[in-house]
C-alpha cells in the first residue's frame, strides 16, 4: 500500500515536470497584433524636405541693398527670368514639347550666375492655378549646379496684383 502511494506521487511529479506552457492564448494575442499591424502598415516612402525662405510681404519699392534680385516667373508659356539689374536683361524660355524646359533654365541660370556673380537667392512666382509639382521640379532645376549651389534659397511669392487683393 505504501509502495503504491509512493509510486503515484512519483508519477504525478514526473507529469508536472513534463507539462508544457500553454502557448495558445499568447499565440492568439500575437496573431491579433500582427494582423492589426499589417493592416495599418502603410507604404513606407522615403521623404525629404525643401527649405524655403520666408517671404517678405513688405511695402516693396525696391531693395536698399546692392544685391541683385533674381525673379523667376512660371507661366503658361514657360519661364521668364527677371533681374533687378536692368542691364542683365530678361530670359524667356518657352515650353518645349508642351513641358517646361528645365534643362534650358538651368543652363541659362548657370551662365547668369557665372557672368554676374549673383547671390544664392531667387524669388519664384507662378500663375495661381499652376500645380505645386511644377514649382518643385523648377526648384530642383535651379537648386544645384553639380555639387555646388546655384540658387538654393527660394522664396515663393505672388504677383503684385495677387498681393494687392489681400
Amino acid at each position: 500500500m505504501a509502495a503504491s502511494r509512493w509510486q503515484q506521487e512519483a508519477e504525478s511529479s514526473s507529469a508536472a515536470a513534463e507539462a508544457e506552457l500553454n502557448l495558445v492564448p499568447y499565440l492568439d494575442i500575437m496573431v491579433n497584433l500582427v494582423i492589426f499591424l499589417l493592416f495599418s502598415f502603410q507604404v513606407v516612402i522615403e521623404v525629404c524636405r525643401i527649405d524655403l525662405l520666408a517671404p517678405a510681404y513688405g511695402e516693396g519699392g525696391g531693395s536698399s541693398s546692392a544685391a541683385t534680385t533674381i525673379t523667376l516667373a512660371i507661366h503658361q508659356n514657360g519661364y521668364t527670368v527677371l533681374s533687378s539689374d536692368a542691364a542683365m536683361g530678361v530670359i524667356d524660355i518657352p515650353l518645349k514639347d508642351g513641358d517646361y524646359d528645365r534643362d534650358e533654365l538651368h543652363t541659362k541660370l548657370v551662365d547668369w550666375k557665372r557672368t554676374y556673380a549673383l547671390p544664392d537667392n531667387v524669388i519664384i512666382t507662378a500663375e495661381p492655378r499652376l500645380s505645386y509639382e511644377i514649382v518643385v521640379r523648377t526648384m530642383d532645376a535651379i537648386r544645384l549646379d553639380g555639387h555646388s549651389n546655384l540658387f538654393p534659397g527660394v522664396t515663393l511669392a505672388r504677383a503684385a496684383g495677387e498681393v494687392e487683393k489681400r
Binding site: R49, L52, P55, A126, P128, L130, Y132, V136, L156, A157
Partner: peptide, 24 residues
C-alpha cells in the same frame, strides 16, 4: 494650386511661423 500653397504659407506666417519647409 500655387495660390493655395502661397495662401497657406502666408497664413502660417501670420501665425508666427517663420521657417517654411516642404515635404516631398
Amino acid at each position: 494650386p500655387y495660390d493655395l500653397l502661397t495662401t497657406v504659407l502666408y497664413t502660417a506666417g501670420q501665425a508666427q511661423f517663420s521657417q517654411y519647409r516642404l515635404l516631398v
